[in-house]
Simulated scan of single mutants.
Amino acid sequence: MKTYSTAASLRAALNAGKRAGKTVAFVPTMGNLHEGHLRLVQRARQHADIVVVSIFVNPLQFGANEDLSSYPRTLAADKEKLFAAGAQCLFLPQVNEIYPEGMDSHSKIAVPELSDEHCGASRPGHFTGVATVVAKLFNIVQPDTAVFGEKDFQQLSVIRKMVRDLCMPINIIGVATARAEDGLALSSRNGYLNAEQRRIAPILHQVLQETREAIACGYDSYSKLEQHAKISLIKAGLESDYFAICDARTLRSVTPDTEEVVILAAAKLGSTRLIDNVTLNVNPSADWGMLAAN
Rank of each mutant, 00 (worst) to 15 (best):
S105K: 14
P112G: 00
L38M: 15
R39S: 15
F62G: 10
M30T: 11
S122R: 04
H37P: 01
R45Y: 11
I263K: 02
M290K: 12
V53F: 01
G125N: 03
I245R: 11
V141T: 05
A229F: 04
K81R: 14
Q227C: 09
C217A: 13
F153V: 08
A244D: 10
N32P: 04
T145Y: 13
Q88S: 15
N65T: 14
Q42K: 14
A7W: 01
S157H: 00
G174D: 14
E117F: 10
P284S: 13
Q46S: 11
L274G: 04
P143M: 09
C119D: 15
H228I: 11
I245L: 02
E239N: 12
I109E: 05
T74D: 12
Q227N: 13
E260T: 00
V163K: 01
G36Y: 09
I245M: 10
L40I: 11
I173T: 06
V27F: 00
A267W: 05
C246I: 09
P72I: 10
G149N: 06
M162A: 10
A135E: 11
E117T: 15
E35I: 07
I170Y: 08
R273W: 05
R123S: 07
A265M: 02
E113K: 13
F243Q: 07
D49H: 12
L82I: 12
S69W: 00
R11P: 05
R164P: 00
Q94S: 15
I275N: 02
P169M: 04
V261C: 12
L10S: 00
A146M: 05
